[in-house]
Structures are given as structure tokens and as C-alpha cells.
């Protein structure tokens, strides 16, 4: 069955396919979020999810130091679900009108994998613009994910979002990263 490519062994091919599948997963995820298909996005979330964003610190010597105690948010399945459902409320003014958002997911690296799970990191740049203006904000983060393999594809079991900001240059974080 397997076609061989000169000089590439089976293991390398598997890694390549895995990486492609992960990148395709992230593209689909980004599309769902950009299109505000939040319920569909939430179907990608594992029941065990830990979805959190530590608070970066500016320190004199260390380039990427994060607060030991503080974070911007730290969600489990229930509290993330509440955040998703909140945007169905006609009072969720933060996204009225919905922001114009585009996510650029790059530098995807599959660090490690087993039959069940994958550890992946990626860089994400988010363009965020809202209201009757050409003004926009950029959010730049590194994501470290644990993805879980299921019959229907990957789910996100853990996501740590390391922001490149100490002072956020956006008036509110009402978009998922």
C-alpha cells in the first residue's frame, strides 16, 4: 500500500501527516472563531479542558516571565461554556456589533505525541477591529495546546495562552484565542 519517497522513512511521513492534520485543525478552528460559530467551536473543546491565559510580567533580566499567581482567565468546561453562551445574550454589549476578527496561526510545531494525545505549540496573531472605525488592535500570543485524538478528530484538552503583552492594548478580551 504505502508509497515510498526516496530517503523518507515511514516515521517521518507519519509526522508530516500528523502535522498537516494539526494545521488543518487549527485552520478550521480559526475559521469557526473568525466567523463567530462559537457553538461549533465549543464542540472542539474536551470535557477536561483547562483554557487559561497567564499574566506576562516585565522583568529586568528574564525575557518571558509570567506571574505565579495571577492570570487573565482560567476556565474549565463549565465556565468556558458560560462565556460562549454569554454571547447569545442580547445584553452582551462587548460584541455588539460583532468585531471583525482574523486569526493568523503560524509556527505550528507538534512537540510530542502518543496514540491519545499531542502536545503542540503555535503562534497566533489576532487582528481585532470593531465599530465604525478603521482602528484595530493586534493581540499576539503563543499557544501551548494538548490535543486529544477522538473518532471525530482532535479536541482541545488544554490550552495555555502566553500573551506577548504586559499591558493589553485592547479594551477588552471578548474574543477566544
Amino acid at each position: 500500500m504505502s508509497k515510498s519517497i526516496d530517503g523518507v522513512d515511514e516515521e517521518e511521513l507519519q509526522a508530516l501527516v500528523l502535522e498537516r492534520n494539526v494545521r488543518n485543525f487549527y485552520k478550521r478552528e480559526a475559521d469557526l472563531l473568525d466567523d463567530r460559530e462559537l457553538e461549533q467551536w465549543f464542540e472542539l473543546i474536551d470535557k477536561d479542558i483547562r483554557y487559561w491565559m497567564p499574566r506576562r510580567l516585565m522583568k529586568e533580566h528574564e525575557p518571558s516571565e509570567f506571574d505565579e499567581d495571577g492570570y487573565f482567565f482560567d476556565e474549565d468546561f463549565g465556565s468556558l461554556k458560560a462565556r460562549v453562551e454569554r454571547f447569545d445574550s442580547s445584553y452582551a454589549w462587548a460584541e455588539r456589533p460583532p468585531a471583525r476578527v482574523r486569526r493568523y496561526v503560524t509556527n505550528v510545531v507538534v512537540e510530542d505525541w502518543s496514540d491519545d494525545e499531542l502536545d503542540v505549540h503555535s503562534n497566533v496573531l489576532v487582528y481585532y477591529s470593531q465599530d465604525d472605525t478603521e482602528d484595530y488592535s493586534l493581540i499576539s500570543v503563543r499557544r501551548e495546546d494538548t490535543l486529544r485524538r477522538t473518532e471525530d478528530g482532535f479536541t482541545i484538552a488544554e490550552r495555555t495562552i502566553y500573551p506577548d503583552h504586559t499591558i493589553l492594548g485592547i479594551s477588552k478580551l471578548s474574543t477566544f484565542l
Binding site: M53, F72, F73, A82, R83, R86, Y91, A92, W93, A94, R96, Q130, D131, L168, I170, S171, K172, L173, S174
Partner: peptide, 11 residues
Amino acid sequence: PSGNFEQDDVN
């Protein structure tokens, strides 16, 4: 900045 209350004030 991501509070379910505070998000809705700033706009």
C-alpha cells in the same frame, strides 16, 4: 479585561 461584567462596560 476578560470579565463577564467588565467586557460590556468599556465599549
